[in-house]
Write a protein that binds this DNA or RNA. Structure first.
Lengths: 176, 176
DNA sequence: TATTGTTATACTCTATAACTATA
DNA sequence: TATAGTTATAGAGTATAACAATA
């Protein structure tokens, strides 16, 4: 991160951490803090690499699911379909991905990695995994596993339209 | 979220979840999935409210730290200072926040809530807390507390420039 | 009539460099 | 010479509506 001061952007007057009050109890607040910081770290440390986190995730998901449909991929990665189209356009232009209409249903577009795409994923995988270990290096192995499990469970629960338990059955949550 | 299909955007062909392979082991990947989905949910459910998550967090942090300096606030919320300036400009224009130069150091700008700002935070707090409960409703109370604690620890560890333990002392992590 | 993927577009959030005023 | 905040600007990521092709 260019433009930072020599002590990493922390200034003397910052030593006393801010009181966050009720923000401390919000999962969403901390998820956002971490997500923003992880992107900063990625660009501080892995800048210059061809594969950004979004591109890498997309390529890896195609590798794990050859012939995956466009829309299914978008849903799995929580990317809107129009934005997935833009991303795949670029990846196809750059030779990482091939797309073709499905024989089963001509509306479908199915996706595959090219050999260049396979190579790029294989080359980047170790660096991505190492970076993920580095960013969680303040956690113990057990803590990291627990965090991962809880995030997976949370993400899974968030895929469906948001509901909350109340009385019998399930209905949309109210807020206030 | 407008534009979604009647069954919430899930299509019949999506029933088999995608294989994510090594992505399943990446904390950063899941943090990003959750963060994106939380923003979608916020805009599905709390659209029309004046206070977005970022605005709410900023106002609440000022409320908890009257007279906080501009830069300290930006650091705590992991917002770049130029972007904090833009945000505070808008909040001041709309009457939520007052800013004035500090007597201690005339370079500093210190921030306070107006009575309108205090009112807005108080009115929104319950809805924000309820929403945060709703989005974590698939987790048990114990799981939610654990997740929160681990996210706080992770966020705290990410504040400093990224280092990893290796041999004696600490040095910047290498990746590959 | 509904769904898939696309096109076009707008908006929000974040990043960077350069400037000022103060120290 | 360094720091705090600002201005200006660029870029990435995401959201929405409307469309053509197919079912």
């Amino acid at each position: 991160m260019r433009g930072r001061t020599s002590n990493g952007g922390r200034r003397a007057a910052d030593t006393a951490p801010l009181e966050l009050g009720p923000l401390n109890e919000l999962v969403g607040f901390h998820v956002h803090l971490v997500d923003v910081r992880l992107y900063q770290i990625f660009y501080e440390r892995l800048a210059g690499r061809a594969l950004t986190p979004g591109v890498f995730s997309t390529l890896l998901a195609i590798r794990e699911n050859p012939g995956v449909r466009h829309g299914a991929l978008a849903d799995a990665l929580m990317i809107q379909r129009p934005n997935m189209t833009t991303l795949i356009n670029r990846l196809q232009r750059d030779g990482y991905v091939s797309r073709r209409p499905s024989a089963d249903d001509k509306r479908w577009v199915v996706l595959f990695l090219t050999s260049k795409g396979e190579r790029a994923v294989a080359q980047t995988l170790a660096a991505m995994a190492a970076n993920d270990r580095a960013i969680t290096s303040e956690l113990s192995s057990a803590e990291r596993r627990t965090l991962l499990a809880l995030l997976r469970k949370l993400a899974q629960g968030l895929r469906a339209p948001l509901m909350v338990k109340k009385g019998r059955g399930r209905r949309p949550a109210t807020l206030a």
